[in-house]
Simulated assay, not measured.
Amino acid sequence: MKIIRLKPEHASDYYQLRIEALQNSPEAFASSYEEEVRQSAAKYETRFGMDDSYTFGAFQDGCLVGSVTLLKEQLKKLSHRVNIVAMYVKPEYRGFGIAAALMEKAIQTARQIGEVEQIHLTVVSTNTRAIKLYEKNGFTLYGTVNQSLKTGSNYVDELLMVRFL
């Protein structure tokens, strides 16, 4: 397995992975499949060229099988924080340490950015595997947003987690 920072030329592969993630785990993301499928890979070409967004991809045999994004806060008073979003690993590749390797790369990058003191993320309360991964990597719970996401008539709570560097 190889983990790299995605570049604009990876946008199409990432877009396909993102669509899959939203289809396979709709409750885990604030974005919906219906919204994302109306977008295009060009959206990610732009994002992957930016300095304040770091999307890492895990490749197995040349195929993108997982990803995570680290976003730097833009406001001066929040410049000591980054956010982890859009963590996903294809189901058939789970259990092999890919998510842990992606998380390690994101944390390592956060340390290298400079000024960063905190890493924030949200996770749905039903995703126990992700919660365990985050706790294992030093994240602690600091709040819950009840009924944060709604799909149809179903609600999911989101847990707010932070890791101090």
Rank of each mutant, 00 (worst) to 15 (best):
M1F: 12
K2S: 15
I3P: 07
R5A: 11
L6K: 05
K7G: 12
P8R: 09
H10T: 00
H10L: 04
S12L: 13
D13I: 00
D13S: 14
Y14D: 00
Y15V: 04
L17G: 06
L17H: 12
R18E: 06
R18Y: 06
I19C: 09
E20H: 04
A21L: 07
L22A: 03
L22C: 03
Q23R: 15
N24Q: 13
S25F: 15
P26T: 05
P26L: 10
S31V: 09
S32N: 05
S32R: 07
Y33T: 05
E34T: 03
E35D: 15
E35P: 08
E36F: 08
V37I: 08
R38K: 15
S40L: 04
A41H: 14
A42N: 01
A42K: 11
A42T: 04
K43T: 14
Y44W: 13
Y44F: 15
E45M: 10
T46G: 00
T46V: 15
G49R: 12
D51F: 12
D52A: 08
S53C: 11
Y54H: 12
Y54N: 00
T55P: 09
F56K: 11
F56Q: 05
F56S: 08
G57E: 12
A58H: 13
A58E: 08
A58N: 11
F59L: 12
F59Q: 01
F59H: 04
G62E: 01
L64G: 04
V65C: 07
T69H: 10
L70E: 02
L70N: 05
K72R: 15
K76P: 11
L78G: 05
H80S: 01
R81N: 13
V82W: 04
V82I: 04
I84G: 06
I84F: 04
I84Q: 01
A86M: 08
A86H: 11
M87I: 10
V89P: 01
V89N: 00
P91R: 07
E92R: 10
Y93R: 08
R94V: 10
F96W: 09
G97A: 10
I98M: 05
A99L: 07
A99D: 00
A101H: 09
A101C: 06
L102R: 06
M103S: 04
E104A: 04
K105M: 10
K105S: 03
I107C: 04
I107M: 05
A110E: 07
Q112P: 02
V116F: 14
V116I: 13
E117A: 05
H120T: 11
H120P: 03
V123E: 03
V123S: 03
V124R: 14
V124I: 15
S125P: 05
T126V: 10
I131C: 02
I131G: 02
I131D: 02
K132R: 14
K132N: 03
Y134S: 07
E135M: 10
E135H: 07
N137R: 01
G138M: 01
F139N: 01
T140F: 14
L141M: 12
G143Q: 01
G143C: 07
N146T: 15
N146C: 08
Q147L: 02
S148N: 13
S148G: 02
L149I: 12
L149P: 07
K150M: 06
T151G: 14
V156S: 13
E158H: 08
E158P: 02
L159S: 03
M161H: 12
V162G: 02
V162E: 11
R163Y: 06
R163F: 03
F164R: 08
L165D: 02
